[in-house]
Design a protein around this nucleic acid. Sequence first.
DNA 1: TTCGTGACCTAGC
DNA 2: AGCTAGGCCACGA
Length: 105
Amino acid sequence: MSFDAEQAKQRFYVCLANIPAGKVISYGQLAELAGLKGRARWVGQMLMRLPEGSRLPWHRVINSQGKLSFPIDSTQYQVQRDLLEAEGVEFSLKGKIDLKKFGFV
DNA sequence: TTCGTGACCTAGC
DNA sequence: AGCTAGGCCACGA
């Protein structure tokens, strides 16, 4: 059985679009939601290659530790964090998100 | 086709 | 809580 990238991409986009504002999900969970269990890294690749104009909520995707997958000092980190805080998502002093509260599952 | 790479994950200490 | 090591899997050179 081979991996159909086109079909996978479609399911991935749909699931991502379904994440409500103010909630976050991990790469692995999103992959599983799209029927792509075990392909968390592929999800990351897709987000990186996402066209800029798209209205997909890429910022609601974080890692399983409840943190953003960017270095603290990067602009990408700031952008994602601002977008999330604008939706009501709270960060701890260490920059961690409470998945019990904001996690989408 | 083989090899290195990465916006990942989990288990162990 | 923080770090390491091993596993994971599609992608591109």
